[in-house]
Design a protein around this nucleic acid. Sequence first.
DNA 1: AAATGCATTTCGCTGTGCGAAACATAGAGG
DNA 2: CCTCTATGTTTCGCACAGCGAAATGCATTT
Lengths: 257, 257
Amino acid sequence: MSTEAHDRQFVVALARGLDILRCFRADEPLLGNQDIAKRTGLAKPTVSRLTYTLTQLGYLVHEARFGKYRLGAPVLSLGYAALAGLDVRQVARPFMEELALYSDVAVSLGSPDRTSMIYTESCRGRGALTIRLGVGSRVPLATSAMGRAYLAALSEAERTRLLDEVRRFHPENWERVAAGVEQAIKDYQTRGFVLSLGEWQSDIHAIGTTIRLPDSGQIMGLNCGGAAFVLPRERLEQDLGPRLVEIARRIEASLGA
Amino acid sequence: MSTEAHDRQFVVALARGLDILRCFRADEPLLGNQDIAKRTGLAKPTVSRLTYTLTQLGYLVHEARFGKYRLGAPVLSLGYAALAGLDVRQVARPFMEELALYSDVAVSLGSPDRTSMIYTESCRGRGALTIRLGVGSRVPLATSAMGRAYLAALSEAERTRLLDEVRRFHPENWERVAAGVEQAIKDYQTRGFVLSLGEWQSDIHAIGTTIRLPDSGQIMGLNCGGAAFVLPRERLEQDLGPRLVEIARRIEASLGA
DNA sequence: AAATGCATTTCGCTGTGCGAAACATAGAGG
DNA sequence: CCTCTATGTTTCGCACAGCGAAATGCATTT
């Protein structure tokens, strides 16, 4: 789990506890010890001790009715504090709202986390049908527009390393997924943005690009997407793609000021 | 830290790591190892190992420019999953919106966490000036309306135990704070809601009551509050207080169905 | 009543996590 | 430019914390 074979600075018990918290997802918010043991590969007594500890601290709540756990309110407090630490959101938001208003779909900003991107800001258009993903949602690297843009912006070495991990999530259609990533890299280099046309979810179309933070050089993703039927390929390529790249540049300029 | 003197089921290293995450707050999102060592009481090499581990896992991000850490995006993902696990939010929201619209201030729902309440849902009125607290914010137990309502709803034994911890946060004015809590308990028993008139923040007035979840019996807080000048005492006592109690009962009835 | 499944507890072991001491680095002050 | 201070990291020896196999407990199913 740690970067080195035997890293004595790395605290394994803490990492295991956080691994348990990561098992909980929006689409599956209730999990039992058995579920957790399966997902983490940890022994059942180990899971029992760790969930007991997390429950004592409030991070998990035991729902006796189902014999399962859900995440407790303290993680909301962490999320709130995390957002406060992201100055880039305040700077980016007006530009994102401008494009969301123009396009009538959602514009989102996100940070990488292992093999996903996590939405850190989201602006919705006034369109009647708009994507439900809020701040904190995860989208996959290889099939979402934001994820593909992020991969495209990485160094070759870093991308190869990540794709090795990503591959494990697409056991049956890796060649097709890899081809999509390859095309995205080309699009990124040619015109500054990438496409995802039903490859993440069948009825979702999106474009993505990246923003590079001035001090840390950290790369964040920026996307624009929604229901496929209001976002035909031509509209994405001719109209919204160039606009997304433009607001990404303007955000970067505002950050650098 | 654990409930028993030496609880062999309690994983101390995990608890310590989470203690570090808790140090980060919305009003102070950047902290160095020294700051963390002071707030947690942990030895500096211990803090160094724990922050290194949290950084490896993405939960902390090192801002080299300041030599400090901030919370990373994965906590947002946990927050998002936590909200998905709170069915009570969907049930409560229409009632809360109804009162927020009527009152033109904010109506919020919250869960207890140690000596605070954490907002889990928040509905704002259309008033030009409304409270900035979003989901994930913490408010103190002894001085906020939501916190006082929660304390009032507890058993005597449970309340005494909690007030022992709360006391440490009010070293200079404990008698005054305790008197406010005492009055809140009386108000709660008499009319079902409590007041906070500038006692949490000088320009904020609010009322609070509680909701009891049907299966777990867990107590949540419900409040209505905002700028003092639009919420004079009489309006709170004669109009909004009874309404808040009414929607709390209606929420409970909807949960029980 | 027996079997099954899930969860918790026991217990012996080992390597994990600890903190004092030492070391490293950057910035401030003279 | 040198010294001192503050902050952070690494070392290292030690003790026990955290581990997982085995046993136990409990609720549900057959």
